[in-house]
Design a protein around this nucleic acid. Sequence first.
DNA 1: GAGTTTGAAACT
DNA 2: CAGTTTCAAACTC
Length: 942
Amino acid sequence: MDTSGGNMDSLDDTGPLPELSFEDFLEPTSEKSSQHMDVLDSEEDDGGGDELADPANDSLNTPQFKKNVVNILEDKRLNPSGVTVLKSHAIKMVTTGGTPPANAQVTDVKILNKFKPMPSNTLKIGSTTIANKSTPGTITKTLSNFTQIKTKDGQVIYVQKSVPGTQSSTAVAGSPSGGVRRLVAPSGIQKAVLSKGVTLASTGLVKAAVPAKASTPVPATAITLKGIQPLAGSSVKSPLSSTPATTSVSLAQPTKLQVFRTADGKIIKFNQAGSSLLLNAKQGTGTTVTPGGSAATSVKLSPSTGNVVLSKPVGQVVVRTETPVKHASGSVASASATPGKMLVQSASKQILVSNKNIIKLSPNAGATSSTTHTTSGQTPTSSGLHAIQLPGKAGVQYVRVLTNNKSAGSTSATASMPKTMQTQKITVVRSPAAKGVPATSTITSAAAAPAVAASKANVAMGSTNKIVMRTMGGSIVPLPSMQTLVSKRALGASTNASKPASATSSSATLSGSQESPRKHRLTDLNVELKQLASASSDASDSSDAGPEAKKPRYVITMQKGSQKATQPVQKLINRTANAQRVAASGTSPNAPKKIYNYVQSTGTNGVKYMICNSGVPQSSTSAMRRGYTGYVDSKSRRMVSISSQQHRFKQMNTQQQSKHQQLQAQAKQRIRQQQLPTEQSAPTKVEPKLPTQPPGFNPVPTKPLFDILKQPATGAAATVDALGGMTSRRKHCNCSKSQCLKLYCDCFANGEFCQDCTCKDCFNNMDYEVERERAIRSCLDRNPSAFQPKITAPNSGDMRLHNKGCNCKRSGCLKNYCECYEAKIPCTSICKCVGCRNMEDRPDVDMDSLDGLMGAKSLQKDKASNKQSNENRANMYFTDDVIEATIMCMISRIVMHEKQNMPVEDTEREVMEELGESLNQIITFAKEKHDTSQLDESKATS
DNA sequence: GAGTTTGAAACT
DNA sequence: CAGTTTCAAACTC
């Protein structure tokens, strides 16, 4: 494929694919469809389909296809398994007129989705199912060559498979055995609008030649799409009724269109005999296949681009894909073609839906954030959806929508939708890309019958892959799918794919527990992915999908990562029942946020307390950047935390004394209980979500101090700061040459999208998902742990360590060039630095004289290591929860004293006493623990 | 803000 | 795996 001028680098890594014919699009029931599906699946498997890759099969390489070739390149997407994404397709249009590829004019077009086998009675274009069982229309084969599709409104679409040679013209060259299929547009079908300067000539036929077999060189089966009107003049958007059926039929000369699948099976070539063929309908363009003229909603779509336009009398819902923003001139364009996006437009609202469940809110077109249920952060919707809005560049907002309910039928959910439904609803339901499992996408309008579509969506999704876009009252909410960032690599470690769970809800919980992230982290997404993947069980989806289908394609997590990611949730759950975590964001969306525990008093005054558990890491700017998932040195964080607490203490108002006393007593009692030798290690942390708890004030943590004390170091993971450290945000990147697709870019390295960065030619955004995914793959190939945090703590409370160590030579590890220093951790023996002075007690050492003194260096590192171990031990007990519990006890004292109008001095003294007492208990506990562990160790050694 | 320094990432 | 180059942040002026 790429041999044709090498302009399709996107295909470089693609594997071979079997033949693809339009028939597949039109007759999903055919075996071919399933065949293709299989091949596509295998192709997805990292070259699993390489054996199929036969350059000879590539029509581009064959002379006869070099004329007026329109290539529809299917993006090689990541394995659909587990997570779903609307697949986009890059379409490459080459109109060379028989000249060598070098002279070819290439136009990039995009198709929304990969083609996927459809269930019988389903006609799809892109991700839209226009006619299926659910629709009143029927599909009837009237002729041997024709498949008649009758819509509800009496519109009829004929799909004809003609005898080879009947329709063929120049374009069909090389397809002796190929059959020609005709798509005859009935009266109801609207005119096709083909954009990009390519027109259908004067014929209403589009002929597609399909290679007979991947192995055979270029035999093609011609497919003729009839009924597509040339652009010529006629109003593309004329009412349905205005277009007589004869119009399309009367088209004199059929336009040939060859459909090909490349070696990897991702490419479809349209060989057009005519001068120009416009396949891309970007705006307003697009083949309008609109049955159901009487219906209030019409569907206009462009098979090539996947444009689907649902137009209503009043409002208009447009679901379409966009062509790549950047058209590489001529060649290569396909490679850089941006993944498909769906523009969901309703009235004045426009939402650009990317491949994932992320909605991009276009700043233009009067788009309003109200279009979605998302405003800022996470917003639950009545439909059980959660939308997380992510600010984007230039006013663009990305919205990730997570579903809360795990219900929803897998396929054709809209089939059961009541026709009386008043609101327009768009439901795109995707099923796993398992063999033979058709993916159906339906666009359902209560008022009108859905319209057309023909395509195979090569999308595999986990059970929760349903994408539901609902347009109710102007709100459009798509469901999540987060395939992209999950790498298949970590599948082995991650997984647990089939565990049914309310993945969506957990995702929402997770998201909710965090402040709305400015950017998505790979790890975060991984969590969501895993949850989604594990939340299979959605009926048919999970069952039908093969085991692979449930697995996330890209799992860029590590064992630690997954647990880590979930850690915040657990911690949050364990938090005091009366403390509700809230995220206080700065005025600026980019401003780092702090996580507070929100405590509200039940008293008459309703005092509220904002307890800052963790400030934004001071080093968030740079340390974050390098994959230090945002946590700060625990010591400093705690100091900040406590100080802020103390500061807030003075702002507290009176509280009910007796209650506080009681609570305080409870806390103390629990602390004492904690000291008991009982080893109920790590209580299961599955408690109801915190935010839902009533705002009753309870100064005593539900988790007693010593319960908390017992927790540390139990979990293997716990490297993530549950208090929100990972929510912090670094400053924006400034990449200029890496396109933000290399680890040089901190945004990319952190698995985040660039937002509000000053980078140039940034590809690290939704518009370039394909490129981004490829880059991620590349990075993972080089280093499977490329996206793992560089600094982690073996156990919660342990000191963080740089997993790889620094390699500084000239900075003495005392500048932010040093990753260790940047992360505010001392260098260790892992580091290969020269002249390191980054030790906790570095002032004691004159490192200037130590250059080259390896002994001294190792000594220092040992020293640092010892200190580190001590600190690790301390961190085991001074966990955030312990501190929090202590603080709550202190707060309780303050409140009590204020209630009693006691002197401030007494209050301060008592508070300090309380602190001392708590510390004493902690120390005692730690000591006991330490002794016990030593005893165990000695026993073990003996 | 421009130029330099630095070390990680990428490349060979 | 080591050496070199590239890159972007940190730093300096």
